[in-house]
Nucleic acid binder design. Structure first.
Lengths: 131, 131
DNA sequence: CGACTAACCCACTATGTCAATAGGTTTTTA
DNA sequence: TAAAAACCTATTGACATAGTGGGTTAGTCG
C-alpha cells in the first residue's frame, strides 16, 4: 500500500503544476483545493523541498513552486522520496541488508522481477502524464 | 512492502511442495528447515488451512499437506489470503470505499493501471514456478 | 488404555509506523 | 511594523506487525 504521504505528495505536485502562474503558491491554497490538512501538508512539502523537487519561499508572497517542468519529474522519484523505497522486500530495499539464505532463496528471483516491474512503471510515468 | 506473513506463507507452501512424499509434514520440520519460529508459522498455517490452500491433520503422524498440485496455486492467491489485498490504494482495495473525489481524481487511472500490473504479475506466477 | 505428537485456540505484548495535530519561530514583503 | 508564509520541534492516538506463551483437542501407536 502506498501511504497517504506518497499520495498526497503527488497531489501537491500536481496542484502546483496545474496552478502554476510563475509565482509561489501558498500551502493554504493547496490544502483548500485538495481538501487536505494544511498542517500535514507542511511536513510533506518540507520533504519535497529537502529532496529538491520543490522550491519553498518564506514570507508574504511566498509558498512553493516546481524546480523543473512537469515533464521532468517521474512519479517514481516522488514516491521514493516519500516512501523511502518502492521495493517489495527488505533484502532488495536495503543495500546493506545481509541475508544468509540469499544463495538458496527460491523467492528472490520473483521479488527481483517484481521490483523491476514496479520500478519501471513508476519511473516511466511522468508528472505531466497526470495533468 | 510485502509482510513477513505473506513471504513466510510462500516459503511454507514451497517447503511442503518440495518435501512432499504423500504424508503430512509437521510444522516442526518446516520451521527447522526454513529457520522460522514454529509458533509464528502456526498462525500462518492456520490461515492457509482456513483459506483452503493447505490441509491440516492433528495427532501423531499429522501435519500439513497441499490441497492441490503446485501448478494449481498462484502466488497471487497466497499473498491475497495473507495480506488481505494487493491493491496499492484503499479506493481500489475496498469495494465499499466511497471517495467523493473519484470523478475528478487525476491519479486514479494510474493506480488502476498499476493495480492491474501487480494483480496480473502475481496471478500469472504459479507456486510450481518457484520450485 | 496411556503416552506421545501435532494441530488448534486464545490471549497478550513489544515495537514501530502512520497520520496527523499543536504551538511556536523565522523569514520576507508591502 | 504588521501580516503572511514557510520552517521547526514535539507529541499523540490509533493501528498493524511480528511475534510469544500457555493451554486444549485430536489422532496414533504400543
Amino acid at each position: 500500500m502506498i501511504s497517504t504521504k506518497g499520495r498526497y505528495a503527488i497531489r501537491v505536485m500536481l496542484d502546483i503544476a496545474q496552478n502554476d502562474d510563475g509565482s509561489y503558491i501558498p500551502l493554504k491554497d493547496i490544502a483548500e483545493r485538495q481538501d487536505l490538512s494544511k498542517k500535514y501538508l507542511e511536513i510533506i512539502a518540507k520533504e519535497l523541498v529537502a529532496g529538491g523537487l520543490l522550491i519553498g519561499a518564506s514570507g508574504k508572497g511566498g509558498g512553493y513552486r516546481l524546480s523543473r517542468d512537469p515533464d521532468k519529474y517521474t512519479i517514481g522519484e516522488i514516491l521514493e522520496l516519500m516512501e523511502g523505497t518502492l521495493s517489495p522486500v527488505i533484502c532488495l530495499a536495503d543495500k546493506k541488508y545481509k541475508c544468509n539464505r540469499k544463495k538458496k532463496c527460491n523467492t528472490l528471483p520473483m521479488w527481483q522481477e517484481f521490483d523491476k516491474l514496479v520500478h519501471d512503471f513508476f519511473h516511466n510515468k511522468k508528472l505531466s502524464d497526470l495533468l
